[in-house]
Design a protein around this nucleic acid. Sequence first.
DNA 1: CAGATATGGTTTGTACTGTCAACTAGTTTA
DNA 2: TAAACTAGTTGACAGTACAAACCATATCTG
Lengths: 103, 103
Amino acid sequence: MADEFKQITNFDRLIHEPSRLAIMAVLSACENADFTFLLNATGLSKGNLSSHLSKLRDAGYVNITKGFKGNYPHTTCALTRGGRRAFDAYRKQYLALARRLKK
Amino acid sequence: MADEFKQITNFDRLIHEPSRLAIMAVLSACENADFTFLLNATGLSKGNLSSHLSKLRDAGYVNITKGFKGNYPHTTCALTRGGRRAFDAYRKQYLALARRLKK
DNA sequence: CAGATATGGTTTGTACTGTCAACTAGTTTA
DNA sequence: TAAACTAGTTGACAGTACAAACCATATCTG
């Protein structure tokens, strides 16, 4: 039958979590994005976004750069090479299951 | 831009969890399955499978029937109507994101 | 100038969840 | 009768997500 179902349990949970999946999806599309932009794009609360970003940074998936824009602090995020690789791998698994579910 | 990314955070987490997603995917394909079959199909441990099944039953997504097959206890599981509906809804969201990720 | 409000976040607390190891309960084998 | 197997369930523990509170600074408002 299908190892495909077994594969599901191997999804990268760090990415699979909906909040982080949204973040990763946005970042993979936008190349780099600031905190406020992610806030709007994902609909997450600030606290949530902050902690998920920290987790993704700790995993080495995103790079967080803090600086200033005018007088306000300003945080920009981008996928690292590793993050992009991890997301590509996830995407592959995701799409494999999608093909299964389509039928 | 895209509400699609916001939609991600609305995934039904009960189904989205990889272990349960595997279970639901199998059940949606097989119409009804016994414990051992699910064990093999998903690769989960018995304890894990048991507790996830309980959760899905508590949510009203699967129906669990206990009986005997010969002398051994025997548990069969099937999606309820509600479970099938929920899974269909999830599938729709899943595939919508898949289309996004394909590009 | 004092106070209120906005920006851009971080930290904390709580409640939930997933997972594995250990256990129950009965059956077969030798 | 003792060991090993089938078919599960339960308990304990670690990890997580989320909201609410908090912080620092900057800019308006009267």
